[in-house]
Design a protein around this nucleic acid. Structure first.
Length: 500
RNA sequence: GGUUGGGUGGCCGAGCGGCUAGGCAGUGGUCUGCAAAACCUCGUACGGCGGUUCAAAUCCGCUCCCAACCUCCA
C-alpha cells in the first residue's frame, strides 16, 4: 500500500486514518434505493461515488464485502402512526399491480441504470422482504432489552430511554432530544407514541394495507429503519467497517439505525460513516414536485428544458468525478458542456497514448522527475478521502505531458522507458479501473473494424487531394464528415478521426 | 426556530495557515493550405466587517446570503 488511507468520518466530523477491523478485509454497507419509481439522478451520483470508493479499496488490495440493500417494503410516506402509506403499496394500488410487480419493475430499471453508469455490482444485494424473520428477531431483542414498547400491535423504539442510557442518540446528526421534542410538538394526529421522537420498528397493518406478515405483535410490516440494521448485522456482523449513504439519510434513517443496533446488541454498527452530498440542479435539490428535476434518460437524450443537448452516461460519470463526493454538485447545462470537452480531451489523450511507443533511448531528467511526482500524486490524492477531483487534476497535468511528447514539444530523451510505461499503466488503472470510465466514442464502433477501414480510405483520399492542393475536395470531405459528427484532426503523423 | 454544510476568478470545481489545483470559456503566440486539434503564454479570485499571526481564501468573532435536514427522499 503506497499511502495511508484517510477517510472523513461523519460520526466525528473529522478525517481519520482508516484501519479495518480485520486486517485486509473490509465490510461496507451502503443504503440502496426504495424501488417504487424510476431511479433518481441523485441516487446515481451516490452509487457512482460509492462505486469509485469500492473500486479504490479493491485496488488497495482489500478484500471487500460490499452490501447494498433494496428497500421493497416499510418505507412510508409520512409518520408511521398517522395515516401514512407504504410507498410500494401505494404505487401498487395506483398502478393496479402486485407490490412485487412494482418492486421487480423498478428494481430492473435500477439495475439497468447501474450498468449504464458502469458500476460494479455489490457482493450482496439483500431485500427487506426477504429478511422479515431477521427483522422480527431484532424487534424482539430490542423489546427484551427494554428499549422498545408495544402499543396496539405496533412496536416503537424508546428514544427517551435510550438517550438516558447513553449519549449516542443524536451524535451523527447533531440533534438534541430537546430540540426534537419542541419541533414535533404540534403533531396533528393523536399519537400512539410516548414521545414524538420515538419511531416505529414494527407497524400493525391497516385493513387496506396489502404487504403484511405475521409477527408476535400483529399482522404488520417492519419499520423502514429496521431493515438496514437487520441486514447489515446478518451479512457483516454486529460491528463492521464502513456504512455509507446519501447525506439526506443522516437523520432520521441513520441515526435511528444506530439506535436500533445499540438497542439490539448494545454495539455501534460501523466504525466509519461516509455520506455523499446532494446533486443539485440550478442551485436547488432536484425535486419532482416543483419541476426542478431531470431523469437520467432525459439527460441521455437531451429531452428536457434544462439542457441544450444529450450527454453520454460516461461523460456524466466524469462530470460527477470532477467534484468531491462530500460536496454538493450543481448540474447546469454550462457545467455539462464544459465537462464534456474535458472528458473528450482526457479520452483523446488516452487514445493517443495507447498508440505511442517510446523510441527506447531516454534518461531520467527533470521532465522524468516531474512526471514521477505527478504519478505518485494521483494515488496520494485518492488516499486522502477519495479525492477524485484532485486525482483527476493530476491526470490532466499528465495529459499535457503526453500531448507534448506526441506533438514533439517534449522529448522522449528526458523520459525513461519505465516512466513512460508507468504513465500508460496509471491512465489505464485510474481512468478505467478506478474511476470506472469508458470511452463511449470508441465503444460506438463495434463493427469489426469496418468503420476504421472505411475512415482510413476516406482519410487517404483526402490526403491525396491535399497533396495535390485540391482544397475543394479535401474541405468537402472534412465538412461532410463534420456534418455527420465525425471530426478530423490533422496531426504531425497523419490524420485522426473521432466521433463526437 | 433548531441541526448540518456552504459562499473561491465569466462558468463548474479543488484547496482549508506560507508552496501553479484542474476542466471549460477568454488573451497573445507556435504549428497547419485554411480550420480544428495540440503545444506555449497571459489575465481575472477567495460574501462583508473586524481580530489573531512575520504570514490568512484557509484560524477566531460578528454580520449578510445560500442549501440540505428536522415529514418521504441518495
Amino acid at each position: 500500500m503506497p499511502d495511508q488511507l484517510v477517510v472523513h468520518n461523519s460520526l466525528t466530523r473529522k478525517k481519520e486514518v482508516f484501519k479495518p477491523i480485520h486486517e485486509g478485509t473490509i465490510g461496507m454497507y451502503v443504503c440502496g434505493p426504495t424501488v417504487y419509481s424510476d431511479v433518481h439522478l441523485g441516487n446515481c451520483r451516490t452509487f457512482v461515488s460509492f462505486d469509485t470508493i469500492y473500486r479504490y479499496l479493491l485496488h488497495l488490495g482489500y478484500s471487500v464485502r460490499y452490501v447494498r440493500n433494496i428497500t421493497d417494503v416499510g418505507h412510508l410516506e409520512g409518520d408511521a402512526d398517522s395515516d401514512a402509506e407504504d410507498k410500494i403499496s401505494k404505487k401498487a394500488r395506483l398502478e393496479q399491480l402486485e407490490p412485487m410487480e412494482i418492486v421487480q419493475k423498478y428494481m430492473n430499471g435500477f439495475h439497468d441504470m447501474m450498468r449504464i453508469f458502469n458500476t460494479l455490482p455489490p457482493n450482496i444485494e439483500p431485500r427487506a422482504t426477504g429478511h422479515i424473520v431477521e427483522q422480527i428477531e431484532m424487534v424482539q431483542q430490542i423489546l427484551d432489552n427494554g428499549l422498545a414498547y408495544e402499543k396496539n400491535g405496533s412496536v416503537y423504539f424508546n428514544t427517551i430511554k435510550f438517550a438516558e442510557q447513553s449519549d449516542v442518540y443524536g451524535q451523527l446528526s447533531g440533534k438534541k432530544l430537546d430540540d426534537l421534542m419542541v419541533e414535533t410538538r404540534d403533531l396533528k394526529n393523536q399519537s400512539e407514541k410516548n414521545h414524538p421522537s420515538d419511531f416505529a420498528i414494527w407497524i400493525k397493518a391497516s385493513p387496506e394495507h396489502i404487504m403484511r406478515w405475521n409477527s408476535p405483535w400483529s399482522v404488520g410490516f417492519p419499520g423502514w429503519h429496521l431493515e438496514c440494521s437487520a441486514m447489515s448485522t446478518k451479512y457483516l456482523g454486529n460491528h463492521f467497517d464502513i456504512h455509507g449513504g446519501g447525506g439526506d439519510l443522516k437523520f432520521p434513517h441513520h441515526e435511528n439505525e444506530i439506535a436500533q443496533n445499540h438497542g439490539a446488541c448494545n454495539c455501534s454498527p460501523a466504525n466509519y460513516w461516509l455520506h455523499t452530498n446532494m446533486l443539485l440542479m440550478n442551485g436547488k435539490k432536484m425535486s419532482k414536485s416543483d419541476g426542478n428535476s431531470i431523469t437520467p434518460q432525459q439527460l441521455f437524450t437531451g429531452d428536457s428544458e434544462h439542457i441544450s443537448k444529450g450527454y453520454s452516461p460516461m461523460m456524466l460519470r466524469f462530470f460527477m468525478l470532477q467534484s468531491h463526493y462530500r460536496s454538493t454538485l450543481d448540474l447546469t447545462d454550462d457545467a455539462l458542456l464544459a465537462a464534456e470537452k474535458g472528458y473528450r480531451r482526457l479520452m483523446d489523450a488516452h487514445k493517443a497514448l495507447t498508440a505511442m511507443t517510446h523510441p527506447g533511448q531516454g534518461s531520467a531528467g527533470a521532465l522524468d522527475k516531474e512526471i514521477q511526482t505527478l504519478i505518485a500524486g494521483v494515488s496520494s490524492e485518492m488516499s486522502d478521502d477519495f479525492n477524485c477531483p484532485k486525482a483527476l487534476a493530476k491526470i490532466f497535468e499528465l495529459v499535457t505531458k503526453v500531448n507534448g511528447l506526441k506533438a514533439g514539444h517534449l522529448s522522449f530523451e528526458e523520459v525513461t522507458v519505465e516512466t513512460f510505461e508507468q504513465i500508460k499503466a496509471t491512465f489505464q488503472l485510474y481512468i478505467f479501473d478506478i474511476f470506472g470510465l469508458a470511452d463511449d466514442a470508441q465503444a460506438a464502433g463495434g463493427d469489426d473494424g469496418k468503420m476504421d477501414g472505411l475512415m482510413q480510405l476516406v482519410i487517404d483520399m483526402r490526403a491525396t487531394a491535399r497533396t495535390n492542393k485540391d482544397w475543394g475536395t479535401s474541405d468537402k470531405i472534412r465538412d461532410t464528415l463534420q456534418a455527420l459528427k465525425i471530426k478530423l484532426k490533422d496531426g504531425k503523423d497523419g490524420t485522426e478521426w473521432t466521433v463526437e
